[in-house]
Design a protein around this nucleic acid. Structure first.
Lengths: 347, 347
DNA sequence: AGTGGAATTTGTAACGTTTTAATTACGCAG
DNA sequence: CTGCGTAATTAAAACGTTACAAATTCCACT
């Protein structure tokens, strides 16, 4: 409006376009441009269109730092990554799911190490204190997970992989490990097995309880012998698991069926059995959960149920987005069923 | 100065401490505090100490958004994550290494999806244009990697996992795959194998050339038959690899030794051989690289060389830190040797 | 006592955005 | 015409930090 004939305009020869760039292009004030881009109804529809057009033309992208400074929102979500253990693709898959859900939202995901050794809360506290993220995702959830408690107290958005036993609701995504364990037992029983064994995860995790319950109750219902290995968990070094299994599978009352919670455990169990000269499919059977396609190629073939970790990550991130928009956590949870049941690899 | 007697001062009842908090505590100006915390020699030593003490007392942590807005530095590094393939712990390990190196530096790492399908440059361009990070890490490097080229042109700090063939130097970390391939061939030859096969990665990757060269030249030197499988690469679906191997290993001139580049390939190869009734250790031998401890438990046992992916991530991140501080890339590279050579799992 | 200069400190502006409060324009009833 | 409510836009302030230029203090030396 100020002038019809454009002055020399030797301005901003470099640098990304900013609100001011668009303001000068269109003749509106910076405030107006900001509001127009936010589709604020107080701004005239025609103005909004003009501004949007100009923004598109110069490829305007709001500056994250400036927005963050002003609004206090970081546009970041963090994933707590357990650095102790190997999960054969778990991290990869869950991150693929998370980034897929976040694509186009402007949010990015940072990875924060989280060791079971040492204080699990330290990292979370730092994120809360220094506002390093707008929301948090974490796995390996405990029954009364102190991280979850801390974040509920702080009113900070988060989604857990795995449930807790708090009465106050929070967002979670989980795999139905109870159903998995039940099906696993039934499958082994259907194959004629009568002494069934489970190598459990660490007792502190909620899903360990689910597994154990499903396992024990299905075994009781089928009236078969069963045991939950006592001296070792799959969260200890795999060599220890192998050691215990090698020993156990040659004892007089050795199990004839094994339920494995994950791929790593299954591989270790297969190795231990092989070392002891026990032949899967003949002497014993083994069933497992699987999270990657690699299991189709493991020999001897074993029956597995697929847990879609990528989908898990995707749903977790989607839920977190809704939480961060203020949606209450009451309805935000999803339980993945062991879909399709057990199956043997093809060919 | 306006008033000597302090007014009611109903200020900042809440919120994190800021530079102003410390300024008011110590009586210095905000600028001084800022400089003092940066250990600027222009500020008196005593002042620096006073300020540091006050900062410690209130637990001051600089606001990232404000600093970022002012300086233009994001305090973020990004890792390009290939979402197509499964690497059995690769992602987990490299991230563990990266976060370990970044601990305490104030930098955090974001994960950005990067698919071989589609434009590999899109994500990088966005990071450059919108200043989403101060530095970039990526894997699966190609000979004339367009991502590397783009970033060299932009003068943007980055470290690759794997070398390129550009003449202009850049920071890289790599595993000596040529030496690995050479040793692998020698190991198979030492076991009496005379027809050796390699299932290669996709030809576009630089390390494929290294592998191929080491493989071929060692085989020639040992005067043994050798072949690089033509019809499939380990970057195609694993079922295709399995299919080809199942077929190949029963032909009249079937190989009697296999070099596997990674755990996934080795497992698939073991499965394919088993399906075809070929017995490793008797009919053929198989050697592989390994990046996780899981291979100690795979049966039949095969000899492996360890590639320390966690250490790789750590070194990459450390290099990136130095690059971001302005150090030229000339000397910034590290080649991991296949240390210790091949070994058989214990027990 | 005066002066130059180093040492130390400080006020102001800026980064790009959103928010608060204020301003302008305009149609319409009194 | 005046006054006024509403719609549309805007100027100014603020978020917390660092950079620039200027101001102040302190000494040593003439």
């Amino acid at each position: 409006m100020s002038q019809e004939t454009a002055p020399p305009e030797p301005k901003k020869p470099i640098g990304r376009p900013t609100l001011r760039t668009i303001a000068e292009m269109t003749g509106f004030a910076v405030t107006t441009v900001s509001r127009a881009l936010a589709d604020d109804p107080r701004i005239a529809k025609t103005t909004r269109e003009t501004v949007a057009e100009a923004a598109r033309e110069v490829g305007y992208v709001p500056d994250r730092a400036a927005r963050r400074l002003r609004t206090g929102r970081t546009q970041v979500v963090s994933l707590l990554l357990n650095t102790d253990h190997e999960f054969l693709g778990f991290t990869h898959e869950i991150l693929a799911g998370i980034t897929e859900a976040l694509r186009g939202t402007g949010y990015s995901v940072t990875v924060v190490p989280d060791s079971l050794r040492g204080d699990r809360l330290e990292q979370v506290r730092e994120i809360l204190r220094n506002h390093l993220a707008d929301g948090l995702l974490f796995t390996r959830t405990e029954c009364f997970d102190p991280r979850a408690r801390l974040m509920m107290e702080a009113g900070f958005p988060f989604v857990t992989h795995g449930r807790t036993e708090f009465t106050e609701p929070h967002a979670w995504v989980d795999f139905d490990n109870e159903a998995f364990a039940r099906m696993a037992v039934e499958r082994l029983v259907a194959r004629g097995r009568r002494r069934i064994s489970l190598v459990p995860p660490d007792d502190r995790f909620t899903f360990t309880q689910h597994l154990r319950y499903g396992f024990v109750s299905a075994a009781r219902a089928a009236a078969v012998d069963h045991e939950v290995i006592q001296d070792v968990t799959i969260d200890q070094p795999m060599s220890q698991v192998a050691e215990i299994l090698r020993q156990r599978c040659t004892e007089a009352d050795a199990p004839d069926g094994y339920v494995c919670v994950g791929e790593a455990t299954a591989l270790v169990a297969l190795g231990a059995l092989a070392d002891a000269g026990v032949v899967p499919g003949r002497d014993v059977d083994l069933v497992s959960k699987r999270a990657s396609p690699i299991f189709d190629h493991i020999r001897p073939r074993i029956e597995t149920v697929f847990e879609d970790v990528r989908a898990t990550g995707k749903v977790m991130a989607e839920m977190l987005l809704r939480r961060m928009e203020g949606e209450p956590p009451d309805q935000l949870h999803h339980l993945f069923a062991p879909e399709g049941g057990f199956s043997m690899p093809p060919h």
